[in-house]
Design a protein around this nucleic acid. Structure first.
Lengths: 232, 232
DNA sequence: CCGTATCCGGGGGGATACTG
DNA sequence: CAGTATCCCCCCGGATACGG
């Protein structure tokens, strides 16, 4: 991608030189979403190898899109934060996502589900103001997955915000959510709703009735969920 | 690019799957600009091999972004036009270009000049309403280039619109424009102006005073010229 | 936890030539 | 003019293992 470039003076080509590198757009999406630490970024781009992630981050730094901030010496610890140029890219990423939501077939992509990634995205968008002002634990049970990755705990606490566990934290569970991973993914993407899935017995809620009843609200959806699909 | 995909349900990743293929963004830019014929597209993406262009067009057709319309049988002749999904991508391309204009260093890209591409872009954007309602011929002379590609003729005629020649069409020339290719490229990109280049003797105009005086106006600039650079 | 080093294979795509 | 066909190289990036 580097040497044999487009060699065009057009700004579109100049930007495409950067955005065209594999994984870069997806990585930028994760950076725009707010992840700053290497391993947090990995969670958002789970199929990207750490070597490549490191390389891309360096490239983005060279291009003035990402800034590397020392958080701690020995052992060294860095934050990767967007520069102003990087934050400006947020609009580009947003318009790409809106287009994707509108026009790309969703059925095939609903096969590419990944519970870790979904939970990671969901955790970030929990609308903490809507939940009661006490610790609330929600256990998600994906019945279609093997025992190793079927159970997830989302813990909301007023002071710490939302937290995510893949092993039982031991708290009393306020709400159990049981469904297929695909159902939960579709809800997250705005293609389905909690109540519809519930009525059609694809999703079951057991526990605190208030927390259950407000799930569609405290469950912040994907940033692109609001944009309707076009063709069927 | 095709098989080992991002495998994410996120709409950004879904769209990036398409946009990430090499040359696709640049090709879409040319399609958005209005080119529909194979060889017109080639002119807008001169460094792309015809084999790859053909392949990308097929992919875009499969993805519902481009529609192939039969213009004539035997020999077969097609128009490649954007579908509604493709036209919607116009906004994405536009936002990419705006970001590029704002944030990508222009100095290196001003080394990647190409007279054929520049003239092709310029021809498309001539503001024909501003020129007098008769045939107007403007000869561009790039003093820094070899004789083979130094001379270009832009012919504006009220009925046919703007036309481009790389060989002398034989018409009387209304205006001679002499400058370096880099100067003309910078003007086209909005980084320089006709009058500034003229005052600094980097550009010389000889001929019809009215046509010369209005050059900055009839010369439609790049669609991104209006967006200012940020950093110096 | 936070990355780096190394290896290796597949295929994307550049170059060139050719045809209807 | 509008593409196909072919060849072949190179380099991207996936996997894995390892250092700080």
């Amino acid at each position: 991608m580097s040497q044999p470039s487009y060699n065009q003076f057009c700004p579109v080509a100049m930007a495409a030189e950067i955005l065209g590198a594999r994984w870069t757009i997806v990585l930028l999406r994760e950076l725009c979403a707010g992840s700053t630490r290497f391993n947090d970024l990995r969670r958002g781009v789970p199929r990207m190898s750490p070597a490549l992630l490191s390389k891309r981050l360096k490239e983005l730094e060279d291009q003035g899109i990402v800034e590397r901030r020392l958080v701690r010496r020995s052992p060294e610890l860095y934050d990767y934060v967007l520069t102003e140029a990087g934050r400006d890219l947020g609009e580009v990423i947003m318009s790409i996502g809106i287009w994707g939501q509108r026009w790309v077939q969703s059925a095939p992509s609903l096969e590419n589900t990944d519970p870790a990634l979904l939970m990671w995205d969901m955790r970030r968008n929990i609308r903490t103001g809507i939940l009661p002002a006490r610790r609330v634990t929600v256990q998600f049970i994906y019945g279609d997955l093997g025992p190793a990755c079927a159970n997830w705990w989302l813990i909301h606490a007023p002071e710490t915000g939302a937290d995510l566990c893949s092993v039982d934290p031991g708290f009393d569970v306020d709400l159990f959510v049981r469904c297929d991973l695909k159902t939960m993914t579709a809800i997250w993407m705005g293609l389905d709703t909690v109540s519809r899935a519930q009525h059609e017995d694809r999703l079951m809620l057991v526990g605190d009735r208030d927390v259950a009843g407000a799930m569609q609200d405290w469950l912040g959806l994907s940033p692109f969920a609001a944009y309707d699909k076009h063709a069927p």
